[in-house]
Every structure is written in C-alpha cells, then in structure tokens.
Amino acid sequence: MISTFKSLALSALLFAGATASVTAYAGAADFSLVNRTGYSISEVYISAANKDAWGKDRMGDGTLDNGKAKLFRFSDAANCVQDIKVVFEDDSSEVVWEDIDLCEVHKITPRYNRKTRVVSAETE
C-alpha cells in the first residue's frame, strides 16, 4: 500500500509539473491588470516600449472599475517589454506606464494621482 501511495504521489507531482510547464509556455506574456488608479478605465492599449503605435483598444466595450481586475491575453513574447496606456472613463485623460516586461510580470497594479500626475505600478 505504501508503494502504491508513493507511485500515485509521484505521478501527481509529475503531472503537476508538466501542466505548469505547458501553462507557463502557453500564456507566458498574459497578465492581469488590477485597477487601483481611483478611476474607471474605459480603454487599454499595449505598445512595444519606445514606439508610438498603440494599435487597438484591448478593453472592447467594457470598463474596468477601480478595484477590479481583468486578464489580458498577450502573445508577443518576442517583444516582452511593453508600454501600457489607459484612458479614463470620466474625463478621457490618458496615462502611460512604461517598460513593463510582460514575459516576467503576471500581475500589474497601476496607481495614479491625478492631482500630482504621479504614475506608479506594482508588479508581480
């Protein structure tokens, strides 16, 4: 019985490791954006760092309310370092967070002080 338990435990560990490897590879640059700006976000753009080509809005029709999170799929692992621009719903102002390595970061919590115009972000 002990050897059966050890075999099952070993199989479970091997399966978990294989699953983690596949998951890490499949979504290596996906990230969650946790809005801690104090404002609802209506648009999100991602651009290779130091390029001014924002492309399409990644939010679609929805908004990301303060305190809420959204998973963004990002597949350009060849260009890991990206800038993220958001547009706020209430006044259409824009803020940019620069040089975020999306291949290393899986969670971004942007913060913004509108009075001082200070932007910061915690990353995990």
Rank of each mutant, 00 (worst) to 15 (best):
G62S: 13
S32G: 03
A29I: 09
N50E: 07
Y39E: 13
A18P: 06
L64C: 03
I46R: 03
L64F: 04
S32L: 13
E43W: 04
L13P: 01
R36D: 10
D61G: 15
G38S: 04
S47E: 03
F31R: 05
V22C: 02
N35T: 11
K51R: 14
I41R: 05
A48G: 03
V44L: 02
E43Y: 03
A26D: 08
L33Q: 00
A24K: 15
A20E: 09
A24W: 09
F15C: 14
T19S: 09
F15G: 03
T63R: 11
A28Y: 12
S21H: 11
D52P: 06
S32T: 15
K51P: 00
V44D: 07
I46M: 07
L14D: 06
I41Y: 04
Y25K: 11
A16M: 12
A48N: 13
A48M: 00
I46E: 04
A49G: 01
Y45S: 00
I46W: 01
F31M: 08
S47L: 07
G17M: 12
G17V: 10
V22W: 07
A53T: 04
A53C: 01
A20C: 12
A28C: 10
W54N: 00
A20H: 11
G55A: 12
D61T: 07
L64K: 08
T63Q: 06
A26Q: 13
I46D: 06
S42M: 13
I41M: 00
L13Y: 06
A20Q: 14
S40P: 15
S47P: 04
S47D: 01
D30N: 00
W54C: 01
T63D: 02
R36Y: 07
I46Y: 02
Y25P: 00
L14K: 13
T23P: 00
Y25L: 13
L64T: 03
V22T: 08
K51L: 03
A16C: 10
K56P: 01
N35R: 01
A16S: 07
L33C: 10
A49F: 10
L64P: 06
L13V: 13
I46N: 02
D52V: 03
S11N: 11
K56D: 11
D52I: 12
T37F: 01
G27S: 08
F31S: 02
S42N: 14
A20F: 07
A49Y: 08
D52Y: 09
N35E: 06
Y39N: 10
D57W: 02
